[in-house]
């Protein structure tokens, strides 16, 4: 269970991790300035298991992996949005953050949620509603379950997953 942190459409990577702070390779450091300009309360108040909820094309802009890493290191397990920018989407899977595609229009900031990956469902406890999510392709789910692509490769003799 976690609370929803709601953002709008087109949240770009400069909003997630502003370029001028991007000088560290330590995810914990990155988490300190995650969303710092649009939601200064986020880095301080976000809790383990919370959700980032957004509109279309989340994570557009630069290829910086710090965006996915900072969100993940903030304790967020999943970002829920109707669509993602593709580089962010890949980065999320690679670092073990779940990019979940679902309609998010009804979700209010602060709503309490749980995510049922097996059944592709989001339970909104606050509104007592369920949202059907798009299932992740199997190979991506396997990467995410392993804890990211590095852990996946280490567990599988350095071989990338079969596609299909």
């Amino acid at each position: 269970m976690g609370r929803a942190w709601v953002f709008g459409d087109n949240v770009n990577t400069d909003i997630i991790t502003p370029g001028r702070y991007n000088l560290t390779t330590d995810p914990k450091e990155m988490a300190k300035y995650c969303f710092c300009e649009v939601r200064p309360d986020f880095p301080e108040q976000v809790k383990e298991g919370d959700f980032v909820v957004a509109g279309e094309h989340f994570g557009s802009g630069s290829s910086r992996e710090s965006a996915a890493l900072a969100i993940h290191a903030s304790g967020i397990k999943a970002v829920i949005a109707p669509s993602f920018a593709r580089i962010f989407y890949r980065n999320a899977i690679n670092v073990g953050l779940l990019p979940i595609m679902a309609p998010t229009g009804s979700i209010k900031d602060g709503d309490e949620f749980s995510l049922d990956l097996e059944n592709s469902l989001l339970h909104n406890k606050t509104q007592a509603t369920e949202i059907v999510t798009q299932p992740l392709p199997a190979f991506m789910l396997n990467i995410q379950k392993a804890g990211g692509i590095v852990a996946y490769l280490n567990a599988n003799g350095g071989r990338l997953p079969e596609m299909g």
């Binding site: 290829s63 910086r64 996915a68 890949r90 980065n91 690679n94 590095v150 490769l153 997953p161």
Partner: peptide, 18 residues
């Protein structure tokens, strides 16, 4: 096409990507 750093690391190691 652009990718994140970990995808790049995987490409360095495997010579491949998806």
């Amino acid at each position: 096409t652009g990718m994140g750093s970990t995808d790049i690391a995987v490409a360095w190691a495997t010579g491949q990507t998806w």
